[in-house]
Write a protein that binds this DNA or RNA. Structure first.
Lengths: 149, 149
DNA sequence: CTAGGTGCAAAAGGTTTGCGGTTAA
DNA sequence: TTAACCGCAAACCTTTTGCACCTAG
């Protein structure tokens, strides 16, 4: 529970750079995250932060996590917020998710997945590798907004 | 609405191979999926299947989608069913998700992401590429079950 | 001073589950 | 015949939202 303000000058500045305020809750959640390298869920962070700051709320944790993502101090590991999508294309391919219209496009590999430049430790036995690309599709039809859902 | 049983012999056999039954609902959902290549969500599938089979339920659609995934006829695009996880490692890396214990391990790249063997069409403008690996971690400590969450 | 943040509690998706009735094999 | 499956509705889990109060700058 390092409350050393010197260490968190960076946090305050980063927040300010994104037009966000420094608060005691944000400082505390950020410190909690720095002490944990096990990719916690929002609920994990909430429980851990709550231990030292019992009155903190879930909404504040979500707010803070969003703020930290926004100013680049943390990243989300699985960024898909919406419903699971299904795919009947069984050929090896990956997916391009358009952040403007929400459509998903299939993208093919040039070679096989063996060519991926990954340094996988020997004690990790992979069974599946997924590549997902985010961006926008600048179609001539210009990325029509999805009906909804 | 192709109810041609000849085309769906494969479906019945694939289901049977996984110890699952062929039902009219599953055939209908599968045909619906084959007619749609836009990576529908479960709700999309439900609405479309409902058009020709008004009494079908959401639970059945989920059941069927699980069955089709189980026998390898479709795939899930974003497979993360649980909560979003957060990461404070800002170096370029990807994630290994252990399906046994639920832990996430960081995996480093050998080179930069430019080396990925992808054939991205020119009208798709990527802003972010994520690689996620699933498998199991055969640690000496032997993949301890997570507390929960 | 005031825009932005906080806590609480309720609502909103997406998915799962329990149950009585139905059906494929 | 019967284990598996169906439809329905309620429950569940994660995340978002509305609102009155509070606070950083």
């Amino acid at each position: 529970m390092k409350t050393a303000t010197s260490e968190n000058k960076g946090l305050a500045r980063k927040l300010a750079d994104s037009g966000l305020r420094m608060t005691t809750q944000r400082e505390h959640v950020y410190n909690t995250l720095l002490e944990q390298t096990d990719h916690p869920s929002a609920d994990d962070v909430y429980l851990r932060a709550k231990a030292d700051m019992p009155e903190i709320s879930m909404a504040t944790v979500y707010n803070t996590l969003d703020a930290l993502v926004k100013c680049g101090l943390i990243k989300q590991v699985n960024v898909e917020r919406s419903a699971t999508r299904y795919c009947s294309n069984l050929k090896e391919h990956c997916h391009f998710f358009c952040e403007e219209c929400g459509n998903i496009h299939d993208v093919n590999f040039k070679k096989d997945k063996g060519a991926l430049p990954l340094r996988i430790p020997k004690h990790l036995i992979p069974t599946q590798v997924d590549i997902s690309i985010r961006g926008h599709c600048s179609n001539p039809v210009n990325c029509p907004n999805r009906a909804e859902n």
